[in-house]
Design a protein around this nucleic acid. Structure first.
Lengths: 101, 101
DNA sequence: ATTATGCGTAAGTCTTGACTTACAGATTAG
DNA sequence: CTAATCTGTAAGTCAAGACTTACGCATAAT
């Protein structure tokens, strides 16, 4: 839900691999696990974290569950970095001006 | 250096607090530590991680070391999310069209 | 009705890493 | 020169969490 949750969710390499897999298109748990060197339950646990962080959506389709990237949650994270981006550029400009003097 | 390094660097709450402190302006290790509930060595260790991830720059100023946000490194991380942002929106549009049919 | 498929959860293991205190080097002040 | 300041690093502790296997519950197929 918070920025911190989203960042912590995307930090571990394997979980980020799950997320990046979904960037190629929605997929089920089994499909994702098939492309990764970890067990299916591990993928299931990672998806739960991503879902709780609102980075991924879950859609039941019969016995399967299709996961996809949540544009809204991703947008919030993007906005978080944009905020720093603005101040970072501003500070950088100031540091250059300080060197000129 | 990599996206993964940057994301792992910003995941822990305390280290992110260090980074966010630098968004308010460059500061020394002691100044940063004064505003946080952790020891100064802890802050020093966090800054090393942020610096290795190219999210922060270090400038020696006498005995002190001034840290500041690195716009270049932050920009790379921002670009990483923009990449996903594009595909996420595209997928979202497709999912809506699929529902219409 | 059984069997098979797909999945989430519980329980346990084991590594990672965030923190502490103690120490040593480098720079500035008196 | 000596003392004070600012910092990085070493070593050790301890909790968090990324995995595993085992299990149980749904839905789908035969």
């Amino acid at each position: 839900m918070t920025y911190g949750d989203k960042l912590e969710a995307l930090a571990p390499a394997t979980r980020r691999a799950v997320f990046e897999r979904l960037a190629e298109g929605p997929a089920s748990v089994g499909e994702i696990a098939a492309g990764l060197p970890v067990s299916r339950p591990a993928v299931s646990q990672h998806l739960k974290v991503l879902k709780d962080a609102a980075l991924v959506t879950e859609t039941r389709q019969g016995a399967r569950r299709i996961y996809a990237i949540d544009p809204e949650g991703l947008g919030e994270l993007r906005a978080y970095f944009d905020r720093f981006w603005d101040v970072a550029l501003d500070q950088f400009k100031r540091s250059l001006e300080a060197k000129d003097s």
